[in-house]
Nucleic acid binder design. Structure first.
Lengths: 127, 127
DNA sequence: CAGCATGTGCTAAGGAACTAGCAGCAGGTG
DNA sequence: CACCTGCTGCTAGTTCCTTAGCACATGCTG
């Protein structure tokens, strides 16, 4: 079985995988309604079947219908997705990413305090 | 002209855009050698032309050949790429992303100090 | 100049992605 | 049972991505 990389997927396949990773355990109908520039219902079902045959997804029965979920755990997919963005757009610099995150949304004082604590924690462990 | 979203591109097109964003200003040959599962040289050139016609890239003359660069500034592309990953894999949580970043690579004490300073700075501004 | 290396532009074919629509199955309801 | 609803499986067709290969331009070198 091939290694599963989001980057190897076609446009539609990738869009579907993103929905599945975001929402975790979804029906074909749910995937459809959460896709950008929504294709046909039938197209979604076909793609889900293809993704399953390639090993990216599996399904569980939920009464008469299917619930799809990723085979690769979110934890892992998350890791390589982040890695990819950091390498591509942030020259591999953690600091730049954090700067962008801080700039992005207006975090509350509590949020900032938690981040601060997170870093302090890591510093302690580093010793 | 359409909005330029990485997510709307085909597999190969997206791979090329990632190389261009990573390396900034590249020739067709450079794009080829930095692509995963490299296609033919000719295919790369065709795709570069297509991306240019769609408005994702433009080129400058460099003697006899072309240097390609993105039309959308890296700063903007970076922002939406990060946004997308955060939403898809981190439930929109900045804190989770930072945690993953800290976990990811072994940062030196100086790196951590800088991150800490960055956050403190933001806290001050927030007041 | 002739030959070679290294570019670009273009086109046409091959194949993969994407789609629509039909058939079948199960559950609920009168 | 007969009928509707909501789901899956499948196939056939179309679109468009992806590719190879040819034609032409430029610069370098013997």
């Amino acid at each position: 079985m091939r290694k599963q990389r989001l980057a190897d997927l076609s446009r539609r396949e990738r869009q579907i995988m993103e929905v599945v990773y975001r929402d975790g355990r979804v029906t074909a109908a749910e995937v459809l309604e959460r896709m950008p520039d929504p294709p046909s219902y039938s197209a979604v079902r076909a793609l889900l079947r293809i993704l399953e045959s390639k090993g990216h997804l599996r399904h569980e029965d939920d009464g008469t219908r299917y619930l799809y979920l990723p085979t690769l755990p979110k934890q892992s997919a998350r890791k390589s997705a982040l890695q990819n963005v950091v390498d591509t757009f942030f020259e591999g610099s953690t600091e730049k990413v954090v700067a962008a995150l801080l700039d992005r949304d207006n975090l509350s004082e509590e949020d900032l305090a938690r981040l601060s604590a997170l870093i302090e924690q890591t510093r302690k462990e580093g010793r």
